[in-house]
Write a protein that binds this DNA or RNA. Sequence first.
DNA 1: AGATACATGTAACATGTTACATGATTTA
DNA 2: TAAATCATGTAACATGTTACATGTATCT
Lengths: 180, 180
Amino acid sequence: MSRVECRLDGMSLRHALLGLLSERPASGYDLLKLFETSLATAWPATQSQIYTELTKLAGTGLITVAAEGPRGRKEYALTDEGLAELRHWLIETKPQRNTRSDILLRVFFLGVLTPEQAHGYLAELIELSDQGYQSLRRLEESVDWDDGGLSVYGRIALEYGLRFNAMRREWAEWAAGQIT
Amino acid sequence: MSRVECRLDGMSLRHALLGLLSERPASGYDLLKLFETSLATAWPATQSQIYTELTKLAGTGLITVAAEGPRGRKEYALTDEGLAELRHWLIETKPQRNTRSDILLRVFFLGVLTPEQAHGYLAELIELSDQGYQSLRRLEESVDWDDGGLSVYGRIALEYGLRFNAMRREWAEWAAGQIT
DNA sequence: AGATACATGTAACATGTTACATGATTTA
DNA sequence: TAAATCATGTAACATGTTACATGTATCT
C-alpha cells in the first residue's frame, strides 16, 4: 500500500537532497553549499536545479518546510516517507547510471593530433590528477572527521577520490610511454 | 576568419561523432554500433540522439553525405571543417566536464542503512568491478589491435578501464573493512 | 554606507531518454 | 515466407545549464 507506483531509476539529484537532509534539516542555500563541498565530485548540481527540486519534493511530501527564518529562509526536513524513499533507492535500485567522461572520450581520438600534441594532452591529465589529489588531501585535513553521520562514509568517498586520481595519474604516465 | 563564433564547451556527442568519422565514413547505424562497443563506457549515446545530431552536423557542414546505399542508408564523411573542429576541441578546449557517479553518490548516504546493508552494497560494487574488468579483458582478446587508427588509443582507453575497475574493487574491499 | 553573504525563484535553452513509427534487405 | 538485421526519423518527456531577477541581513 505504501509504495504508490513503480518509479524509474535515475533522479539521483532527488536522492542526493534526501540523503543530505537525512543528517539534519537544511535550507536550499545550505544544500547548495553542501553540494559545492562534499558532493561536488560525485554529483554536481546548480542552484537552479536544487531550488526547483526542493519545491517538487515538498509537493510530494518527501520533505517538509520545518521552519522559516530571516531573508525568506525555508528550512526543509526529511519526512518518514522521504527516509523510506531514500532507503528504497539505496537498497532496491541498482546503481548503473552511465558514467560520461569527457576526458576519456578525447583519448580515443588523439590519433588525429601529432604525437607531441597527444603528449601535451596526457600531461594536462597528469596535472589535473595531481591537482585533484592535492585538493582532496587539503579537504581531508580541513574536515572534522569526528563529526556526525556523513563523516564515516564521507571519508570513504574521499578515499575513492584519492585512489582515483592516483590511478589516473599513473595511467596517463604509462599512456605517454606508449606513444612513440 | 575561419572560426566564426565562440563555441561553448560541452557538445561532446558531436565531437564523438566527428572523431569516429575521422577514421572512416560511416552511416548512423554503423556509428550506433561503434558507440555500443568502443565508446560505451566513455560516452554512451542512444540511436535517437545519434541520428538527430548527424542531421545537425550535416546542416552545419562539418560532415557530408558521401554516399547513399540500400535501405535509405546515408554514409557520412568528415569534411575539412569537421576535422578542424575536432582538432580544435582536442587542443583548445579544456576537458572539465563534471563526472556524475550514481555509484559514489550512494556511498555518502550508506549511514542510513544497517552495517549489513552497507556491506551488501559494497559487495555489489566489487562484483560490478569484477564484471567490468572481465568484460574488458574479453574485449581485449577479441579486438584486432593491428587495425587502423583507433587501435593505439583504443588500447590506451581500454587500459584505463582495466585500471579503473581494479582500483574500484580494491577500494570497495578496503571500505568494507572500515565499516564495523 | 557599501560590500559581502544569505536567500529564493524563474525563463530559455541544451542535452539526454524512452517510446513510437516506418520500411527495406538479407538470411534461415 | 518469416524472422532478424539494417536503416532512419520524430514526439514527448526528463534532466541539466546559464542567465536573469529580486530582495534581506550582516559585517566592516
